Simulated assay, not measured.
Amino acid sequence: MPLDAADLKISMQTAWILVGMAGLVLLAIATAWAIAIERIWSGRPVIPTRSGRPVPWGGPQVFASFFLWQFATLAMAELLRALRGEEDEPNLVTAMSAVALINLAILIVVPGFLALWNQARAIDFGLVWDRVGRDLILGVLTAIFCLPLIYGVQLTAILIWPPTPHPLMEMLFAERSPWVMILGILSAVIFAPAAEELLFRGVLQGWLEKRFGVTRPTRADDEVSELSSNDLQPGLNPRVANLTALVVPAAVFAIVHFGQWPAPLPLFVLAIALGLLYRRTKSIVAPIAAHATFNGLSTIAMIVIVLMVPKVEPEVVPIPGEPGVSAPEEATVDAEAEPLQAGESANSEENPTR
């Protein structure tokens, strides 16, 4: 739904609410940057580095996990197409509900699959309960810290390429009910970040870091066996290994969202930040929190825009007749004008136009 500036007729109260929200975001960004500067000034790392255990899964399990994800997505798309028919327009609410269910299934199936195949445990995903609170806070602060860079790239991109409408925005404009907004929040802020970080950071980046020897040595009390020579890529420069394990998951993450161009460009920057966060914390909790924070701010902005713009019903537009002939002023149209409404010219036989 294209927006026109004339549609944004907002009251003074709404304008002050928007100004207040923007002020809170700017205050949060300033706070995150102040914390980062203070840590650098005091000689501490911005993101604390932890030792971690190498993940137990390998390449076949990574491929199988992504195959399950794509197979579930394609199967659900075919099911929805069969239910609605080939000629019917897709129902955005139903499609968003299906995406949320797929992501929820991924959160259940993939860890269970890896637990059965590789005896993976919660600690292999960095789920240590006494660290969860700190990782959540760290993830939120990291997302807020990166907002100026991500939004800067996004603004530059949309000045060059016209943005593709986001399915969530289209759904919110089509169905403006509280339940649809709740569905959008659940899908975009909870299920999607958790499932995507599990796959891209936990499964894919975790395996690449083990494969390229990026994973740091673990403490003796972690009870982890040493990496075998088959798990390491021989002769690879450490810098190349570090960069490859970071960039490949970020690039795949951006490519998956290619249909929403130019969104992949700022999403690639976001994915790099999420990958660094995962590498430092050795946990998917912090990347999930950061991803959810970014999606949450974007979703709230969409909802605010939807509430600002009044719902406009489609207007009945009169079908024009011959060029240079104005439409009749009367509401009723006589029988002689019907050929004009059908797109035919009254004198088409004498003066054919095609």
Rank of each mutant, 00 (worst) to 15 (best):
residue 14 T to K: 13
residue 147 L to H: 04
residue 282 K to I: 01
residue 243 L to E: 00
residue 62 V to L: 13
residue 254 A to P: 13
residue 301 A to E: 11
residue 233 Q to F: 14
residue 245 A to G: 15
residue 198 L to P: 05
residue 106 I to A: 11
residue 64 A to D: 10
residue 152 G to D: 06
residue 177 S to Q: 11
residue 6 A to W: 02
residue 133 G to A: 11
residue 220 A to Q: 08
residue 161 W to F: 15
residue 232 L to A: 02
residue 47 I to Q: 12
residue 90 P to W: 06
residue 160 I to V: 15
residue 101 L to V: 13
residue 136 L to N: 03
residue 211 R to E: 11
residue 320 P to A: 13
residue 135 D to Q: 13
residue 39 R to P: 02
residue 333 V to N: 00
residue 155 L to K: 06
residue 217 P to K: 13
residue 336 E to A: 15
residue 131 R to T: 10
residue 238 P to W: 09
residue 20 G to H: 11
residue 304 V to L: 12
residue 322 E to G: 01
residue 325 V to M: 04
residue 344 E to G: 01
residue 249 P to G: 09
residue 7 D to N: 02
residue 118 N to V: 07
residue 262 P to M: 02
residue 344 E to W: 10
residue 75 A to R: 04
residue 215 T to F: 03
residue 62 V to C: 13
residue 264 P to D: 09
residue 286 A to C: 05
residue 88 D to W: 00
residue 192 A to T: 15
residue 333 V to C: 03
residue 329 E to F: 07
residue 120 A to R: 08
residue 93 V to P: 03
residue 343 G to V: 07
residue 352 P to W: 07
residue 163 P to F: 01
residue 283 S to F: 10
residue 343 G to W: 12
residue 237 N to Q: 07
residue 239 R to V: 11
residue 342 A to N: 12
residue 12 M to N: 08
residue 287 P to H: 06
residue 263 A to T: 03
residue 206 G to V: 07
residue 168 L to G: 13
residue 151 Y to K: 02
residue 153 V to Y: 00
residue 141 L to D: 00
residue 342 A to K: 14
residue 104 L to N: 01
residue 238 P to E: 10
residue 240 V to Q: 08
residue 193 P to L: 02
residue 197 E to H: 09
residue 100 A to L: 14
residue 185 I to W: 14
residue 265 L to Q: 00
residue 349 E to D: 14
residue 273 A to K: 04
residue 230 N to Q: 09
residue 56 P to A: 08
residue 148 P to H: 06
residue 60 P to H: 10
residue 103 N to H: 14
residue 242 N to V: 05
residue 170 E to D: 12
residue 223 E to R: 12
residue 62 V to F: 12
residue 213 G to F: 13
residue 231 D to Y: 04
residue 240 V to A: 15
residue 198 L to K: 02
residue 160 I to A: 15
residue 185 I to G: 09
residue 223 E to I: 05
residue 320 P to V: 07
residue 222 D to C: 11
residue 186 L to N: 08
residue 248 V to G: 11
residue 104 L to R: 01
residue 185 I to F: 15
residue 306 V to F: 05
residue 199 L to F: 02
residue 135 D to K: 00
residue 37 I to F: 11
residue 57 W to V: 09
residue 129 W to I: 04
residue 325 V to A: 07
residue 128 V to G: 07
residue 342 A to C: 03
residue 62 V to A: 09
residue 194 A to N: 01
residue 308 M to A: 14
residue 211 R to I: 07
residue 279 R to A: 10
residue 325 V to N: 05
residue 36 A to V: 12
residue 129 W to R: 14
residue 314 P to H: 08
residue 135 D to W: 09
residue 322 E to L: 06
residue 167 P to Q: 03
residue 334 D to T: 12
residue 118 N to H: 13
residue 102 I to D: 04
residue 322 E to M: 06
residue 71 F to E: 07
residue 55 V to L: 05
residue 323 P to G: 00
residue 172 L to C: 06
residue 247 V to Y: 02
residue 234 P to L: 02
residue 142 T to S: 15
